[in-house]
Design a protein around this nucleic acid. Structure first.
Lengths: 261, 261
DNA sequence: GACGAAGTTTCACATAATGGAACAGACCGG
DNA sequence: CCGGTCTGTTCCATTATGTGAAACTTCGTC
């Protein structure tokens, strides 16, 4: 829970503070933040002031407690629609969800962790922030492994440093060696499985979304439970997933380079 | 489109740059940003570097163009779930949407503008511009006016400064005087209407969500079109909306002050 | 291989952040 | 009514940080 110390410059510290407030999950008072932070009183105070004036934080007018500001939601809307695969991938994900009747996840990699940018379950429709924006581990999820498998060595090394191998279930991979072996198999096969590695009874098949250069832009998974389906049945649908992933990748590329200027 | 100049301190400038990238809507190159900004080359460069290192921006590895980073999406998820009414209001909004079969919007006020934090579509999808995270004008929308009406004078004055009275339709209010008169009526009545003031053919009935102290926490609207319903029919449902708003407010209060520590 | 455009680095300088310490309220209980 | 303490706010000399004109390095183009 201790604050990160590797901040460079003033904006680093400011973001540190933002993250601290975000981590708390509830409106939090100055004194409470002060305890958990390593910054001196006056410094923390000024940072909070600045962030509040900038509407990145807002202060409860009654208690003076700090919480994340609405400006973030606005910025994130831009972020989501401009730098995530979600808007592009939406039609394909909708189609997959319809055809299979199962849950589809769309994720991207964020500093070694899985960030879900969209989700379609059998019933619910557009619920962007409720589902999207959540983070999860990479080493024990289908989408995570699918992306890790296609990173180049420097990027992979950096991502692996961020993993902590908590044993969620008996099937969870235990260390970097096991994970690297698994990634090798995924690379050969072209897609990944989650064999109840994160939650008991939950399995999935995940495919990477690769740029022309082979870099993973994201990943997509079809998730189900052991009492509804088997790995073999999931694997039968891998082709469909790979096909959709290819189309999304093509779209993404052509959107990013509209014309070579 | 010129950049804001009223930045205080370094983090102000950094956020300015963030906003600039967000406003562009597409991956944008350094030189292009340089043109549109008032910062000197080296300064802009360093700011971009810092933001990128902090994952608030990301750089397309192929073109070097900047786009908003995924960290924002993560932060916004926290913001949405901790400082917006949306998660609390969800069950009520779901219920209203089900019972009425019409579109329900949930919005909050952000610097004089309406920020939509949730939306529930009608069964029959009327295509409309609002979606969670989007912003809209306050002076010509139901939710906007419902919130403005219950601000105290200092806050209202500040919010009104942010309005620019663009004549969207023949029914749009034309200036602050007209708006203030309308707000007076809304205050007496307890809820607001949008009589095709923003989009032709679109009408709504909106209620404020008020804290115990009478401060508007947000607003909620039931939206429909003139060829499906009339203002009178909408008004008949105002009671239902007010009731839901009251429940949401109560929940919000009790969540914010779990116990007085 | 010379030219211009896009991006990166340098460095003397000044602004802007720092943080210890003093200050102001609010809220007790005595 | 007065000390005590717990919270939040302000001061100000010191110094770290950010500044930006200009020089430099790629890289693609003619």
């Amino acid at each position: 829970m201790a604050s990160e110390g590797h901040s460079d410059g003033t904006v680093g510290k400011a973001l540190d503070v933002l993250e601290m407030v975000a981590g708390h999950g509830k409106p939090v008072r100055f004194s409470e933040l002060l305890e958990h932070s390593s910054y001196p009183k006056a410094t923390l105070y000024r940072l909070l002031q600045t962030l509040t004036k900038q509407h990145m934080l807002q202060q409860d007018p009654d208690t003076g407690a700090f919480m994340l500001g609405v400006r973030l939601v606005r910025l994130a809307h831009s972020a989501w629609s401009q730098s995530s695969l979600a808007p592009l991938a939406r039609p394909y994900i909708d189609a997959l969800s319809r055809e299979t009747g199962e849950t589809i996840h769309l994720a991207q990699l964020d500093r070694g962790h899985v960030l879900y940018v969209d989700k379609r379950n059998a019933v619910r429709a557009i619920e962007m922030f409720a589902q999207a924006g959540k983070v999860g581990p990479a080493y024990c999820t289908g989408v995570g492994k699918a992306m890790l498998a296609f990173l180049d060595e420097p990027a992979l090394a950096e991502a692996l440093k961020e993993q902590t191998y908590y044993q969620h279930t008996p099937h969870t991979l235990k260390n970097e060696a096991e994970l690297r072996a698994e990634l090798e198999r995924i690379r050969e096969r072209g897609y990944a499985f989650d064999r109840e590695e994160h939650e008991p009874g939950i399995i999935c098949c995940a495919v990477p979304i690769l740029s022309r250069g082979g870099r993973p832009l994201g990943a997509m998974s079809l998730t189900t439970s052991t009492n509804r389906s088997t790995l073999e049945q999931l694997e039968a649908r891998a082709g469909m997933l790979l096909e959709a992933a290819g189309k999304i990748a093509t779209h993404a590329e052509s959107w990013r380079f509209p014309e070579r200027v």
